[in-house]
Nucleic acid binder design. Sequence first.
DNA 1: TTACACACTTGATCCAAATCAAGTTTACTT
DNA 2: AAGTAAACTTGATTTGGATCAAGTGTGTAA
Lengths: 227, 227
Amino acid sequence: MREQKLGTHDCIQLVPIFKQLTTVELQQVSAIVHEHVYEKGDVLFNAGDEADQLTIIAAGQAKVYQLAANGREQLLYLLQSGDFDGEAALFNPVIRTSYAEALVPTQVCSIQRSDFQALLAEAPQLALGILNEFGKRISQLEGKATSVTTSSIGGRLADYLVETAASFPAQTMFTLPLQKKEIAVYLGTTPETISRKLNEFQTAGWLKKGRGNQIAILDEDQLALQD
Amino acid sequence: MREQKLGTHDCIQLVPIFKQLTTVELQQVSAIVHEHVYEKGDVLFNAGDEADQLTIIAAGQAKVYQLAANGREQLLYLLQSGDFDGEAALFNPVIRTSYAEALVPTQVCSIQRSDFQALLAEAPQLALGILNEFGKRISQLEGKATSVTTSSIGGRLADYLVETAASFPAQTMFTLPLQKKEIAVYLGTTPETISRKLNEFQTAGWLKKGRGNQIAILDEDQLALQD
DNA sequence: TTACACACTTGATCCAAATCAAGTTTACTT
DNA sequence: AAGTAAACTTGATTTGGATCAAGTGTGTAA
């Protein structure tokens, strides 16, 4: 379950780049992890900051926004337990172009670049697993860039719903983790359009809306087919 | 200059992930490079293939397309001398979701995964430079995903023009390296729209169109401001 | 140089989604 | 439980760009 609190070890193992560590390596990494708790609304990091650490969400939720040149902002990720951000910072200093804010009280584990580099010098085989994971992330982002220019809003919303629903039992009602306004920003559209599309999907019998921000996916296959 | 033919050493050094190699390391990498020449229209690799090598363009040009679920295709990159693709394949087997085609006779250098892995085992410090480069690529892609959902077509075209013009002297006429149709696909729009937007920009006095596919940027700052 | 195919342009129309403008619900505060 | 502010929905209108349909260039090959 994504809601529960994670220990340092669990925390590290959830980060894909650390998934394949041996017990010994895991110990080594644990030794350089710091923990910190943020309150709701706290800023984990700001655009313009120099990033010098990897941040792992141990418990809670945080939103990561990217600022576009024209001042508009784009929700990049919704981070939950086990998600992480800033892994690029472990390898070289980068200036952040995004900022993150805690949605609820949130506990994070973090690893400083300097500590990590020292560790890497001692245990170079660590790097291989990380390289693997980076490769995957790149493919994923290429896919996203493609879908944004080739799919309609309806299609992207359908994808988002199916993806989000994946962490809940099939066919059951669940609460969307984001408000309509935020889903809208994430998908590059408006709350009104989200509202209308959800109605269309409900009329088509593909999902059912409940009170609050709850929905149940009834026909995942049809949704996924949405172009 | 991007048009000239590159030797094996030059070729490798142009790949960002190999930029910081020492002379000795460079020798090591050179030893595992293969060369190959493709004719215009030849396919360098196909969607569905299992990628098992890094491909570097030594001379020529190739287009890389991504196929979307609905059958539409999206031009991902235009590769020129020194550009490369498939670096993820060096770390683990991936099934390609894109395909690449030579635009003109094109010479490539390639490195097989197995060879590279063997080398990495011998010289683990190689991995650090690569990790760096991956981090940069990820930021770049995140930026692209953002711009696509937050900017208008006009803005994206303006960005594309400014970026493309950067490799030519300021204010001079140059030939666009892609046809309108291809620029259109790349930006997720249509040739008609590209045509109209270029006219708008010309009327605004920001650029000047010449015969063929030539243009000259007159006011880069205004173009860059386009939302 | 003429012919032909292809790229490009221009105009007319159409459509998905944004925007604008009220309502209505929901959830939070006291 | 009432009051309030925010989130959401619904409707009317507008609009950026796609699509469709002719044209007009442009480069190439005989």
